[in-house]
């Protein structure tokens, strides 16, 4: 009698626990309640590739002004704020010197033309990205279908481990509210801004690729920047790589950057 009463109480307790846990489980489980009939698709015009890559013909850019259209269009397209305080600067793509872009290629008597040229630097969308390895929440991840290293701003906890891990300094952190560095009238309604306290960087224009457009910087480069599938031997980028001598940033680190430079 005594033991069966104890058993009953135990079972009742377990049942109550189960009922109590249900809403909690429901809250944590992925939201997949839209039913079986709905469908998701990449969109009819989406550009696809196994691994997107970029080839920058640096010979086509001779002075810093030549790079401005690319930088401007990128930052406009993605609502990248402008801050005058150097500490809060956010940049997705910017211009730098040869010895800053390639500090591991310190050749002393490098060709004058190559040394004086301005160089465009951005996220390399590495095949083996250290930032993805470091991120504790998969907020930054390598997209399986096309190799783009993406940021999930909704999930980023702002620990900045990825910034320490990136050997190219490609990542920026929102130290202040980014809207304070944007002009409300000039914002691009097609792309969101970010919130304070998350990390951001170049996304290879994933939102443009989805509707069949090439990245914004590629579009305004007058053909000086090529964009295509690295895994397709007949793609434009592979064609350029076959015919030109190219270098990549810090390739000795084994990250396999996907931005190539013709020098």
């Amino acid at each position: 009698m005594k033991s069966s009463r104890r058993r009953f109480i135990k079972l009742a307790g377990i049942a109550a626990l189960g009922l109590g846990a249900q809403p909690a489980i429901k809250a944590i489980a992925p939201a997949a309640q839209t039913g079986p009939q709905v469908e998701f698709s990449p969109g009819p015009n989406a550009l696809t590739a196994k691994q997107w890559a970029m080839v920058i013909d640096t010979r086509r850019f001779n002075k810093p002004e030549d790079l401005e259209p690319m930088i401007e269009v990128c930052h406009k397209t993605h609502n990248v704020p402008h801050f005058s305080d150097k500490r809060h600067v956010i940049k997705w793509i910017w211009e730098t010197h040869f010895h800053n872009a390639f500090p591991d290629i310190p050749n002393r008597f490098i060709s004058e033309a190559a040394e004086s040229r301005p160089y465009l630097v951005l996220c390399n969308h590495c095949e083996n990205p250290p930032c993805v390895r470091a991120c504790p929440t998969k907020a930054t991840f390598k997209r399986e279908n096309d190799g783009i290293v993406m940021m999930d701003m909704h999930r980023c906890i702002g620990c900045r481990f990825c910034m320490a891990a990136c050997p190219y300094g490609s990542r920026s952190f929102n130290f202040v509210d980014p809207r304070t560095g944007l002009n409300e009238k000039e914002m691009n309604p097609k792309y969101p801004t970010r919130m304070m306290g998350v990390v951001e960087k170049c996304n290879f224009c994933a939102e443009r690729l989805a509707v069949g457009q090439k990245p914004a910087c590629v579009e305004v480069s007058n053909g000086a920047i090529a964009f295509g599938d690295l895994s397709d031997p007949n793609s434009e980028v592979r064609h350029l790589l076959r015919e030109n001598f190219t270098i990549r940033r810090k390739q000795n680190l084994g990250t396999e950057p996907c931005v190539y430079y013709i020098v």
């Binding site: 150097k86 500490r87 809060h88 952190f173 202040v176 306290g197």
Partner: peptide, 9 residues
């Protein structure tokens, strides 16, 4: 935001 600190990019 963390802009009140001395940290930077």
């Amino acid at each position: 935001g963390l802009g009140i600190t001395g940290m930077s990019r």
